[in-house]
Design a protein around this nucleic acid. Sequence first.
DNA 1: TTGTATGCGTTATCAC
DNA 2: GTGATAACGCATACAA
Lengths: 318, 318
Amino acid sequence: MATIKDIAEKAGVSMMTVSRAFNNPKIVKDEVRVKILAIAKELNYLPNQAARSLASKKSGMIQIITRMNPDDFYFTQLFTGAAHYLSDHGYSMMISKDKTREYQYDGAIFMGLLAGEDQVIYHTIKKPYVLLGKTDLPIDWVDIDNTDGSYKMTKYLIDSGHKKIGLIGINHDEAFTQERYLGYVKAMTAAGLTIPKEAVFRVPHSIEGGRRISPIALAKKDITAYVCESDLLAYVLIDYAKEQGMSIPDQLSVVGFDGFLFNKMSIPHITTVKQPVYRVGVEIARVLVNRINEHDRPKQRVLIKTEFENGGSVKVIN
Amino acid sequence: MATIKDIAEKAGVSMMTVSRAFNNPKIVKDEVRVKILAIAKELNYLPNQAARSLASKKSGMIQIITRMNPDDFYFTQLFTGAAHYLSDHGYSMMISKDKTREYQYDGAIFMGLLAGEDQVIYHTIKKPYVLLGKTDLPIDWVDIDNTDGSYKMTKYLIDSGHKKIGLIGINHDEAFTQERYLGYVKAMTAAGLTIPKEAVFRVPHSIEGGRRISPIALAKKDITAYVCESDLLAYVLIDYAKEQGMSIPDQLSVVGFDGFLFNKMSIPHITTVKQPVYRVGVEIARVLVNRINEHDRPKQRVLIKTEFENGGSVKVIN
DNA sequence: TTGTATGCGTTATCAC
DNA sequence: GTGATAACGCATACAA
């Protein structure tokens, strides 16, 4: 492996000039710099990151901390997105399930925290880091714009001519469910429609939860469309309706949220908003690198918009 | 950041003893080692990887080289599996699309090579590396056991009472298609069944390819079951058959291969073998780390078995 | 079982 | 614009 010393000797300059030619090219005389770079290429020079790290006191390492299931679709997409961005920007990375303190690192990305853990992190971690998911603390974070997503879905139903629109929500105590609910309310209100309270439900996010509520939801005969807070719930509702001999979307329109798998499992496919998870991963890495490069920049809060995907589960009335 | 020097002073020993206490604990007197580790914990000591790399001349970096689409399901699963294993074993990693030579590294993983590239790599790369996918060259590789997978699928049909079993294959010129074909042939032969040559097809791997062959396949009236070399093809066949008013699996049994998405998109779901992609990623990383640790070990060729998944697209005759 | 001397390849600092 | 020197934190080689 060639080193800057080899290059320096061959070019008749000092090691420092070689170092500058790479890291601060402007301050090296053109002629000298060109010569140095030529020799570097000739010798197949590759900078030794370890030595660079040691001298500059930067590890070049990013920790990814998560308790998500390793082969979970959501996590793998997220992680790969971050990995691509970090690699492109000269950072290498390690995943750890929990502890932040096994290796030295320049920055960290937290994905899939439990409630309240943002507090702990905020008071513990002194290095740059980013969270996946909102928090009120003065911390950089990136999240999906849930409100906008379900607003778009609801608005799409309204624009398709629906007026009596119910909601099948998720009864988790997590922010994203309330945000999706809020999007529904906003769209309804903006259109001057009344929210049919007897057709607004909150259920456990599971097939079982969906199965229990489906007959009750279908019993509301004047409701022509349901906004579901996930594709899973939409899938189960459609499945049940078809079992009962109903035709979708002719007799009932349904929209979902997620765009991972369930939207394509039903026939017709579910009209939904897709979470661009890979891009969220890229974005969260970008925010972290920004923070590392500029410690004092204002806090970054990034909301990623979902993407509309027409599956055919909505009837256009007009 | 505490260093071994700090620990050494506080413990009244030399830096080398501290270093040994971590890297070669056995040769340090028990009493001394315990004391050193206690002080290390007290000082929140974390080894400086850069310094360690520099001194030991090992970068601790693994390159992942791939031209796969970054947010492709197959790649993200694979990559994350490898990432987990590598992190657990003290390696950090970087992804690059092509060039191996932007950073110094201890080992490389190649995923998604083009035909013939194994040759180039074999003659170019001198460091430890592993390939995803078979090759005849004396190189470590990891791959899915395609033959075993389609053997299992075919055997399942046979065990379910089917005798006239056709095949819808993929006409790519890639090893995996021939292996899947071979599995079919093996199972048929082992059961003493004749292969109905008029019902063995090879088509482009696309919805269009499937659409073109489906009517022809269904015209073979004595065939009771089809082995498809992918879930996509199985999906299209089932879809077409249902369009024609056929009932699946009552009038036709179908099995697939992959287990990613299409198997769950059709009703009934497709009985298939699932490629455990995440685990392939873990395995490929393990093979690489083995190679790095033991340069002269025999070449490693790892075939990962697929996993049977009953979707309900096969009729049990008997 | 432990210690000493030296070097890994780069950058920071200060001087010219 | 450029150079000399020291330092980054650790491990290797050798000595005791």
